[in-house]
């Protein structure tokens, strides 16, 4: 693909690396976690060498992910504050899903859906990290009642977040020209103008 020098940078290298570290960790955690979640997925433990290895590695990968997610969330939080036009966007999300974005309100760097995803993941990460640490018998000893509650919270938060991530990944595939933003950082001006017009104007100074 010939890259246009006038493409717009959406993410710098460090932001992209940060995102991929979190993403890789998340996928590994989801695969190993689901293996313990239901017997149907138990064979996934083989991806990690053995069932016991999957059990040993999962929490350590979790700690790495929690650390890098925290950094990423701090970087992106300010851009994800929810404003009036986001609520408006969310009210009309049905039209968007239906494939018609003509009447969608203009959006900044992130649209209402992306912001909801962001805060959903922040809450999910908080719950899953705290509960995961409480379940970590190799290092942590808490009363059994706490472990039981943590197990429920951990499994619930995992399902919630895997659901969000399925939507997140699908939205990136569905909206053509998006994945490159996380691969090499740029998007076309047309993409930016169509999907994030307010941001497009800020970046280019284009008043239209």
């Amino acid at each position: 693909m010939i890259r246009n020098p006038r493409d717009i940078q959406r993410y710098n290298a460090s932001e992209r690396a940060n995102h991929w570290i979190v993403g890789i960790c998340f996928i590994l955690l989801a695969l190993s976690g689901l293996a313990f979640f239901h017997p149907a997925f138990f064979p996934l433990t083989q991806l990690f060498g053995s069932p016991t290895w999957a059990r040993i590695l999962h929490p350590y990968i979790g700690v790495v992910m929690a650390f890098f997610f925290l950094i990423m969330a701090l970087r992106f939080a300010r851009l994800n504050f929810i404003h009036k036009q986001d609520i408006e966007w969310l009210k009309r999300v049905g039209e968007m899903v239906n494939g018609d974005d003509h009447n969608m309100p203009e959006q900044g760097k992130y649209n209402g859906g992306q912001k909801v995803l962001f805060w959903g993941l922040v809450i999910g990460m908080l719950l899953i990290t705290v509960s995961g640490v409480l379940m970590w018998r190799s290092w942590v000893a808490v009363p059994v009642g706490v472990v039981r509650a943590a197990s429920v919270v951990h499994a619930g938060a995992a399902v919630f977040m895997i659901g969000l991530i399925i939507m997140h990944v699908y939205a990136a595939i569905w909206t053509r020209g998006t994945i490159r933003a996380m691969l090499y950082g740029t998007v076309t001006r047309a993409w930016a103008k169509q999907h994030h017009r307010v941001w497009y104007r800020q970046i280019t100074g284009d008043k239209r």
Binding site: F37, I162, I166, M167, Y170, I173, H195
Partner: peptide, 23 residues
Amino acid sequence: MAALGAAALGSLFHYVMKGPNEV
């Protein structure tokens, strides 16, 4: 598990039925 499966399959069918969101 059914909910997650529905989310994944739903996404696929959404793509197939509505097409991509192109510029």
